[in-house]
Design a binder for these strands. Structure first.
Length: 419
RNA sequence: GUGACCAUAGCUCAGUUUGGUUAGAGCAUCUGGUUGUGGCCCAGAAGGUCAUGGGUUCAAGUCCCAUUGGUCACCCCA
């Protein structure tokens, strides 16, 4: 048997309504904030992600699905979408058509990691990018939108964490301070963190190793090395969130693994899922557009994992999806009349009714059971004595009332079902 | 990439500890329960190479090894 690739999942018809529900909510909230959807290709030139996300990041160095196409070009299935959106913006000069572009997206992403709860190799993200302004109100807007979507789903066990990474020069200065502090503790750090000391010293804050955590507790904090401009940016984000009633905590260890972040970073975690608890994350990326060959435009954005969100919804039992139902099930009494049933079904469907009928030549009892299973509001009996008078029988499945209707009065039937 | 645990019907699981007839249940599916009428109920049917391959044994779903797949955690991230 050929099976789905490791880490990929089929979304079956029995699950699709919760995806529709989530997608519709996302589109609704983004449109209230006047964000427009953008759809970019599933694959891009490998160099886009290498430059955009950062060569040294885990995503680029060991998680991307990269392959050569038939002409020998290196392509990569998108592992995230910020780089693609920025590429599209530059390629189509969107910033020249309007100085602030507010964009959102929904779609599959690909990363070759070991699957576990809330983590797949093909997974779905939605997210937003706002490119063209350094206004901290937009940083806050990202967090508010993400929070509103999660809150409107009914999720409760949420924690909003924010931090500021300042600008690159501040961060470089701080890294030196941090390295100075860590020098004396170097031998006590975990093996992983010893490597990070060289490659990306900030990431030591992310460590779950007890020894590392103890050492980092007393480490100098980046926030104390930010200059006035960065601090006031961060203050505005915080006060804006407070006014919008979004509870948050400042988490100085929130460093995040993508190279492009500046100033605000944030994450919303849920206690209702497994260890992959970050439902969404994002931040400001003021250097990215220029890095990818565009003009020097500031930007801010976030992405959210849809599988994780649905998992949290399931665990908190908050989604109330109405059960599927159909307007009418047509039951054919005489098998010789199935063509008539079929024709009635077609014409009623064209009148905007949801209609089903039997294709398996089953007994009347079996057809009734099927109608019941499909939650049919009405059932129509076609055949027998009534048909000799050019009539069909309409049955209301809720109160079991039946009435004869002439085939010449189909409009009456539509009206009745539509009520 | 590292580690732990798991694999029996479409689904959820008994049976494996202590090897011994024809591998079971519930749900789901299908067919009936008197002419042409659902849900509840009742009866019956169908559905399994016990993940795959090898080994031990008179005998393997059960013990051993390998492989494959899955789950969870590390790592990383959404």
């Amino acid at each position: 048997m050929i099976k789905a690739i490791t880490g990929t999942k089929d979304i079956l018809p029995s699950d699709i309504s919760k995806w529709y529900f989530l997608e519709n909510l996302i589109k609704k909230i983004f449109s209230k904030f006047n964000y427009k959807e953008i759809r970019t290709p599933i694959f891009e030139n490998t160099s886009l992600f290498a430059r955009g996300i950062g060569e040294a990041t885990d995503i680029v160095s060991k998680e991307m699905y990269t392959f050569l196409d038939r002409s020998g070009e290196s392509l990569t299935l998108r592992p995230e979408l910020t780089a693609s959106v920025v590429r599209a913006l530059i390629e189509h000069s969107l910033e020249k058509k309007q100085s602030l572009n507010k964009l959102f997206y929904i779609g599959p992403m690909f990363r070759q990691e070991r699957p576990q709860a809330g983590r797949y190799r093909q997974f779905h993200q939605f997210g937003a990018e706002s490119i063209g302004s350094n206004d901290p109100l937009l940083d806050a807007e990202m967090i508010i939108m993400a929070f509103d979507i999660l809150a409107q789903l009914g999720l409760k066990n949420l924690e909003v964490k924010i931090n500021s990474l300042g600008v690159p020069s501040e961060r470089e200065d701080y890294k030196n301070v941090l390295r100075e502090y860590l020098k004396s503790h170097l031998s006590n750090l975990s093996e992983e963190s010893k490597k990070r000391f060289e490659t990306n010293v900030l990431r030591i804050f992310d460590s779950k190793d007890e020894r590392d955590i103890e050492i980092m507790k007393h480490a100098p904090l980046l926030i104390n090395y930010l200059k006035d401009e960065s601090l006031s940016h961060f203050e505005t984000v915080k006060s804006t969130l407070k006014k919008a009633n979004v509870n948050f905590s400042v988490d100085s260890s929130l460093v995040r693994g993508l190279d492009y972040y500046t100033h605000t970073t944030f994450e919303i975690v849920s206690k209702s899922v497994g260890s992959q608890s970050a439902l969404c994350g994002g931040g400001r990326y003021n250097g990215l557009v220029k890095e990818l060959g565009g003009s020097d435009l500031p930007g801010v954005g976030f992405a959210a994992g849809m599988e994780r969100i649905l998992l949290a919804c399931e665990n908190e039992n908050v989604l109330s999806i109405p059960e599927d139902k159909i307007d009418l099930y047509i039951i054919t009494l005489d098998k010789t009349k199935s063509e008539l049933s079929y024709n009635i079904a077609i014409s009623l469907r064209r009148k905007n009714l949801t209609v089903e009928l039997d294709y398996l030549l089953r007994s009347v009892k079996a057809q009734m059971r099927e109608a019941n299973k499909l939650n049919a509001k009405y059932v129509l009996f076609v055949g027998g004595e009534e048909l000799k008078n050019n009539e069909v029988v309409l049955k209301n499945m809720l109160n079991s009332e039946q009435e004869n209707i002439s085939l010449n009065e189909i409009e009456k039937l539509i009206k009745k079902i539509g009520e």
